[in-house]
């Protein structure tokens, strides 16, 4: 009671406007809330306790059965498995080494053949794509040296440019025309071939 008065005096000094307002609040409760809440709290506690009892119950270890002497035999069987795995992995490593050791000349020859075949396939596949992506600088160089090219090569380039699309041909049609000029060749000559 003394505290109430002290709090009121303190409030009068700090915030007299607030001190003059009633402390009643606007919050309401459902009917018989506290009685029901008490029951609900005790119910939740009982449920929690029951769950805890089940979890801590000594019976839990009897829910599952074990083979006779399971735990006595367990360390031995684990060690046996570990050793077995160690032996297996050592054997498989040795096997690989022995195979390679015995057949190293035969394997080296096979690898060489494989490399040669792969390279020839790569060369065949790579050349067209390389030629088709020939850039402008390369074309310029080709034109620069056109007079030095054999006539037949220039003719072949011309025929190829006529037979293929722009993107697939070695050089573009107009570039072939320059090439032909540079090589002192003309359409009449080509037609006469």
């Amino acid at each position: 009671m003394e505290t109430n008065k002290m709090i009121q005096v303190e409030l009068m000094e700090t915030a007299p406007g607030l001190a003059s307002i009633s402390r009643e609040h606007p919050f309401k409760l459902p009917e018989h809330y506290f009685e029901k809440a008490e029951v609900a709290i005790l119910e939740s506690i009982k449920i929690n306790e029951a769950a805890k009892e089940v979890l801590l119950s000594e019976n839990k270890e009897h829910l599952f059965k074990l083979p006779a002497n399971y735990f006595d035999d367990l360390p031995g069987s684990i060690l046996y498995k570990i050793k077995e795995e160690e032996i297996n992995s050592a054997t498989s490593k040795k096997g690989i080494v022995r195979f390679v050791g015995k057949n190293k000349w035969w394997m080296a020859a096979a690898a060489s053949v494989l490399i040669v075949i792969s390279l020839s396939i790569f060369k065949q596949a790579a050349v067209p794509s390389f030629v088709s992506t020939i850039n402008n600088d390369t074309t310029y160089l080709l034109l620069e040296s056109a007079s030095a090219l054999p006539d037949q090569m220039v003719v072949d380039l011309y025929l190829e440019s006529q037979a293929t699309t722009f993107t697939n041909s070695v050089i573009a049609n107009n570039e072939v025309n320059y090439l032909m000029e540079a090589a002192d060749l003309n359409n009449e000559y080509i037609n006469s071939l």
């Binding site: 307002i21 009633s22 009643e24 606007p26």
Partner: peptide
């Protein structure tokens, strides 16, 4: 649902 006060009470809250 369970709030119902006068103007002053509401303003204070």
């Amino acid at each position: 649902t369970y709030c119902d006060g006068n103007k002053i009470q509401m303003k204070l809250q």
